[in-house]
Design a protein around this nucleic acid. Structure first.
Length: 419
RNA sequence: GGAGAGAUGGCAGAGUGGACGAUUGCGUCGGUCUUGAAAACCGUUGAGCCCUCACGGGUUCCGGGGGUUCGAAUCCCCCUCUCUCCGCCA
């Protein structure tokens, strides 16, 4: 949710919202509605004050005076009712209009669309395509079975098997160790949440068709543990001296992937269900830009520790999504496609999400809205597939990155099958 | 799944239609006393929004949403959650 006060007072804030792709005319409409709502609120409250005084007076009045006073108060109530009705109409309209205004982009974000990103760093070698792409080698080495999974559950499901499972849990342990070093508290979150949480976390109504619904129970499967972590401190006031609070959520994630027919149909790249370690930070507004850089550093550390070639880009304003003021994508080189593809991303939501969640911080100068950030620590399935390709060796085996060996006891995968 | 009880400020816990944003206790913060501390005593102590340069004023909030009434923490309806007992279960 946007800060209406800043939207009307700060031209830069307004311009930065427009950079995200919202119509300037829409913002003007929001501001007009805001002004109308404030005027109506002032009038309504004045009437209510009058009405409150009248009611209290009845309580004090002598019995013989009551009749007349009640009649007078009743008339006041009529006027108040009309004013309240008008106010609630304007407020509903305002809320509806304000809800679609995106969080303004930070000044360091390049203006533009999907292709206008800025490359920040490039690390590692862009290796040539391996003998087998991740889907093929997964099937060949008995690590991934999509054919049987399709019979079981439909397309975009997979059985992950054998050493891939060992690697999966090694990745979880590895990622948790990395984030724990920075004070992240591990959390296993609920994967089912109420509709209200989906709305407050900003996924409804916009991404409703991406979310699985359990209609009988009116519960929804989360697409990321971000939903559950963003809701953790709903309506709370956090102690300033305990911040920043950093959580590492681990959960399965569920996505309908509506509208992606024919895209990334092989292997684990785009599936309906995958596991993920997600970072989520609550912090003081003064600190959030530092925290964003920390998230990015951790992400680079995790990926480079797995010896994967990657680059980091700053996503352009038009491709940010409504809540993010700035977003980095970390993309790993996918040799079979000879291009970089996303593995993690991290965003600063500033106070956009906290305003809706009503998560505040106690400070000496009163309470302020928290800033929230989120970023992937490790998307397990995708990371597995980048390992399958980038660490595939000439003999058809997969070399296990040093960093994972202590967690799974494997040096190489597929030696028996390949020979 | 069945039956019952409940949800009030940081916490505990009063309050069943009119001076209640709410008795009291603990905790908080400030002060008195003390070499210092404790104890004791005195005082202080919720949040959101609107108006105002400010001082200040108004309004809303007693789990959430609706309703009755001139007036609701209090009465009515719906929802959510918690506890106790029974059933089931990893």
């Amino acid at each position: 949710m946007i800060d209406l006060r800043r939207l009307r007072d700060e031209e830069g804030y307004r311009q930065a919202a427009i950079a995200k792709g919202i119509d300037a005319a829409h913002i003007d409409r929001v501001l007009k509605l805001d002004e109308a709502a404030r005027k109506s609120r002032t009038e309504t409250e004045a009437l209510r004050a009058e009405s409150n005084v009248a009611s209290k007076d009845i309580g004090r009045a002598a019995p013989e005076e009551r009749e007349a006073k009640i009649a007078a108060a009743g008339e006041l109530k009529q006027r108040l009712g009309a004013a309240e009705a008008e106010l609630s109409t304007v407020e509903d309209e305002l809320n509806g209009a304000a809800l679609v205004v995106p969080n303004p982009a930070h000044e360091s974000v390049p203006i533009g669309d999907e292709d206008d990103y800025r490359v920040e760093t490039v690390v590692g070698e862009q290796i040539p395509a391996p003998a087998l792409d991740h889907g093929a080698i997964g099937e060949k080495l008995g690590l991934v079975d999509t054919e049987r999974a399709v019979r079981m559950s439909g397309s975009r499901f997979a059985y992950v098997m054998g050493d891939a499972v060992r690697l999966q849990f090694a990745l979880v342990q590895y990622a948790l160790a990395k984030v724990s070093a920075h004070g992240f508290i591990p959390v296993v979150t609920p994967v089912l949440v109420r509709e209200e949480m989906m709305e407050l976390a900003g996924f409804f109504p916009t991404d409703r068709n991406q979310v699985y619904a359990l209609e009988a129970d009116e519960l929804y499967l989360i697409g990321t543990s971000e939903v559950a972590l963003a809701g953790m401190h709903r309506g709370e006031r956090l102690e300033g001296d305990q911040l920043p609070v950093r959580y590492a959520g681990y959960s399965s994630c569920f996505r309908r992937e509506a509208g992606t027919y024919g895209k990334d149909t092989t292997g684990l790249f785009r599936v309906h269900q995958f596991d993920k370690v997600e970072m989520f930070v609550y912090c003081h507004p003064d600190r959030s830009w530092e925290e964003l850089e920390l998230l990015r550093e951790i992400q680079e550390d995790i990926v480079s520790g797995l010896e994967l070639p990657y680059r980091v880009i700053t996503v352009a304003s038009g491709d940010l999504g409504a809540p993010a003021a700035k977003k980095y994508d970390l993309e790993v080189w996918l040799p079979s496609e000879q291009r970089y593809r996303e593995v993690t991303s991290c965003s600063n939501y500033t106070d956009f999400s906290a305003r809706r969640m009503n998560t505040r911080i106690k400070t000496d100068d009163g309470n302020v809205l928290a800033h929230t950030l989120n970023g992937t620590a490790c998307a397990i399935g995708r990371t597995l597939l980048y390992i399958f390709e980038n660490h595939q060796q000439g003999d058809g085996t997969i070399n296990v990155p040093e960093a994972l060996r202590p967690y799974c006891g494997l040096d190489v995968i597929g030696a028996a099958e390949a020979s």
